[in-house]
């Protein structure tokens, strides 16, 4: 079954990456272009032309989608029997929501995406490490919270008490962690409209990718399970 779920994850991730990549091409790329125009093009390395970089955007998002889809399939195989959802559709959507939160959305709250020119080239190494540590801690926090919730459920703790306690603990731990980490780059006087149009487009790209991945994987499982998936 591990191989089967891995294959479904790769297929769903490939589809999700392609769709999110095309979305980013139309709705994110224009803001990258505005940011590059602000930079004046002077600092730009011209080994790859702009049209090829725009193609590279779709390739990058597709490669990312396929890779996280493979991880999704492996995690689904490992955790399927422990999830409370009653069917694979529900399990798949929950897992994609958890991975979206842990791998992207929570780190984004601490270190929001920066368009070209808004970051500081002098400390890129430190910021990359801080970002990876944040991703690791956030994704761990999500799965620890999920596991604690499951243990409490199996012990018979009521739903409201369980979710309130786990939720409060989760928020407290992440708040402490975010406070301890170095602050995000100050964008200085980078134009706020370009900055936020860009950030919203990164959020939309990632949300679309994870929603498509969860839905496609869930549909593949439901079809294989011989049940008619409810649309």
């Amino acid at each position: 079954m591990l191989r089967t779920y891995l294959g479904r994850g790769v297929a769903a991730g490939l589809l999700a990456g392609l769709i999110a990549g095309v979305f980013a091409y139309f709705f994110g790329e224009p803001h990258v272009g505005r940011a590059l125009a602000l930079e004046g093009g002077g600092a730009f390395n011209e080994v790859v032309s702009r049209p090829v970089q725009k193609l590279g955007l779709i390739v990058a998002v597709t490669l990312y989608g396929t890779s996280v889809g493979a991880i999704f399939g492996l995690v689904f195989a490992a955790g399927r029997d422990r999830m409370a959802a009653s069917d694979d559709w529900g399990r798949s959507l929950r897992l994609s929501a958890a991975l979206f939160a842990g791998l992207f959305f929570l780190p984004f709250l601490k270190y929001p995406a920066d368009p070209p020119g808004a970051g500081d080239p002098s400390n890129i190494g430190v910021r990359t490490v801080a970002y990876l540590v944040t991703v690791a801690v956030c994704v761990s926090a999500v799965f620890v919270a999920w596991s604690v919730g499951r243990v409490l459920r199996e012990q018979g703790t009521g739903r409201a008490a369980r979710q309130a306690v786990v939720g409060a603990g989760f928020v407290a731990v992440l708040a402490g962690f975010f406070l301890a980490m170095p602050p995000a780059t100050n964008p200085g006087n980078f134009p706020g409209d370009v900055l936020w149009d860009f950030r919203i487009s990164t959020l939309a790209t990632q949300a679309l990718l994870w929603a498509t991945l969860g839905a496609a994987f869930g549909l593949l499982c439901e079809r294989a399970n011989g049940r008619k998936a409810s649309f």
């Binding site: 994110g28 390395n45 970089q53 590279g56 955007l57 990312y64 995406a113 920066d114 990164t202």
Partner: peptide, 11 residues
């Protein structure tokens, strides 16, 4: 350079 725009837009 090839993945430049994708890296920015993936966060």
């Amino acid at each position: 350079e090839f993945f430049h725009d994708g890296r920015h837009l993936l966060g």
